[in-house]
Every structure is written in structure tokens, then in C-alpha cells.
């Protein structure tokens, strides 16, 4: 696989939650237009690290982040960077589908409205349709855009949330275990969607399912006890890991 431009570069990142040292010295380079999977046992810090990438940890009082995280060469923890603007560029999809208690249309239009991406109603309609198509849910909801988003099934809700994240035209899409609340059919649909999204975005996905990491990602990072143990091509990690801890994890001996 040919190497691509580096989208996000993290350098010596440390995260503390109060007295807990959650992330220790993590260096990682995430490529553009690639799906990168973060795997590791529960509590290893992969979700915490993911939330550092769009400064969602800022909303937690006791959380401190040190080190550099560069997005396109710019430090996102620089004082001049507005975390709100950053989050428009680095979208996020959460573990549990969390559509707003609004109509499907308004859910998707939420981001574009806030950021003024549409000049008029027609443009907004277009963005909503495009995003729902990209979220692979357009055909299921096109006749009931006014119905509440909370009335959809779990899998549909999650794809709606992805469409909602895509609507703000982010450059990076962070996904925190997006399929953990979904059944296998919905999971397959979301995975297919992730594969499509790769053509336009850099996607980072946290997952507990190693099969899922193997199916959707090109690069995989293995976290253990707050350390980044191994990072490389997905095929390499799963067939020929360098570190014994990685091997133990993927063969099911630790977890």
C-alpha cells in the first residue's frame, strides 16, 4: 500500500484524569483517506485518545492533556485554536446512537445551520440529501424526513448520526465503537459505509471487535494500559505482530 499524506500527527501525548495517568507517551501518525482502527482491552485509553483528537476531553473538568497533536501541521491545543471550530473539522460519531429529539431533516441540518454552510433552503435541502445518501440511509428515510430521528431503529439511528457528522463536511471522522450497540446486519451496513467514507475522509475508529478492525481498517494501533504498543498496517498487525502483547491480545490471551 502506497503511503499517503499525514493528516494527524500526535507526539508524546499524555493524558491525566485527576490522578490517573490514562495515556502515556503516545506517538502516532494518522494518514489521510485511510481507515485507522484503535484496538485494545477495555480501559486501555483508546477512547480517551480518540477524544483528544477533537478536544472533546475539554468538556471534562479533571482531564489534562499534554504533548502535541498536529492537524495538517497545526497544533490543535494551541491557544489560538477554537475547539468549536476544530470539532467542525474533526467530526465524531459516538458509541450509542444519539440523534437529537428533532426531525430527521433537522438532525442532519443541525451542523450546516450552525456553521452557515447553506445560503438558502434549497442548498440546505441539497446538503441534507447528499449527507443522507453518504450515510447510506437516504432510501429508507426520504419519504419521512419530518419524522423524529428518535423513532428510527438502532442501526438507522447510527447511520443518521454518521450522516449528521458528514453534513458539516469534516476532514476527519472519529468513531467511538460505532457498532457496539448494533446487531450484525446494521453493523455490516455501517462497516460498508465506513469503507465508502474512506474515499473522502480520514476515518479513525475505536473498536472492540478485532474482526471489525481487520475488515474495515488499513492501519491498526494496539493500545495497552495507556501505551501505544504497536502501530502498523492492519494486515501486518493481525498476521505478524511484532510485540508479544499484541499477539496475546489478538489471539485472545489478554483482554
Amino acid at each position: 500500500m502506497d503511503s499517503k499524506a499525514i493528516k494527524i500527527a500526535a507526539n508524546k501525548v499524555q493524558v491525566h484524569y485527576g490522578d490517573t495517568h490514562a495515556i502515556k507517551d503516545v506517538d502516532v501518525e494518522i494518514e489521510d483517506k485511510t481507515v485507522t482502527a484503535f484496538i485494545g482491552p477495555s480501559g486501555c485509553g483508546k477512547s480517551t485518545f480518540l477524544r483528544c483528537l477533537n478536544r472533546m476531553n475539554d468538556t471534562i473538568d479533571i482531564c489534562r492533556v499534554q504533548g502535541d497533536i498536529l492537524l495538517d501541521g497545526e497544533d490543535i491545543y494551541d491557544k489560538r485554536v477554537d475547539p468549536v471550530q476544530l470539532r467542525a473539522k474533526v467530526g465524531m460519531v459516538f458509541q450509542k446512537p444519539n440523534p437529537f429529539p428533532k426531525s430527521i431533516y433537522d438532525n442532519v441540518a443541525y451542523g450546516p445551520r450552525i456553521h452557515g454552510l447553506a445560503r438558502n433552503k434549497a442548498e440546505l435541502d441539497e446538503i441534507v440529501e447528499k449527507s443522507l445518501r453518504r450515510g447510506a440511509i437516504w432510501d429508507e428515510v426520504k419519504d419521512r424526513l419530518d419524522a423524529p430521528g428518535t423513532g428510527l431503529s438502532g442501526g438507522q439511528q447510527q447511520r443518521l448520526c454518521i450522516a449528521r457528522a458528514v453534513a458539516t463536511e469534516p476532514e476527519v471522522l472519529l468513531m467511538d465503537e460505532p457498532c457496539s450497540a448494533l446487531d450484525p446486519i446494521a453493523t455490516a451496513q455501517v462497516e460498508e459505509l465506513i469503507d465508502d467514507l474512506r474515499s473522502r475522509y480520514s476515518v479513525v475508529i475505536v473498536t472492540h471487535s478485532m474482526q471489525q478492525a481487520a475488515r474495515v481498517s488499513q492501519k491498526t494501533a494496539f493500545f495497552h494500559l495507556g501505551n501505544l504498543v504497536e502501530y502498523g498496517e492492519t494486515g501486518q498487525i493481525f498476521t505478524n505482530p511484532e510485540d508479544p502483547r499484541t499477539e496475546s491480545y489478538i489471539t485472545g490471551r489478554i483482554g
Binding site: V84, G91, M92, F94, K96, F100, Y110, G111, C161, A165
Partner: peptide, 23 residues
């Protein structure tokens, strides 16, 4: 999760309160 969802889309805290939490 509602707050996270809104903040994750690049909304400010006040926009989140006005457009998501209050409704």
C-alpha cells in the same frame, strides 16, 4: 450523549443549550 453529539458537531455550549437541550 445529546450534549456530546452537539458539541461533537462543532456547536458551542450555548448553541447546544438553545438548539438541543431546551427543545
Amino acid at each position: 450523549s445529546m450534549r456530546d453529539g452537539s458539541l461533537g458537531l462543532g456547536a458551542t455550549h450555548s448553541e447546544t443549550v438553545r438548539s438541543v437541550i431546551l427543545p
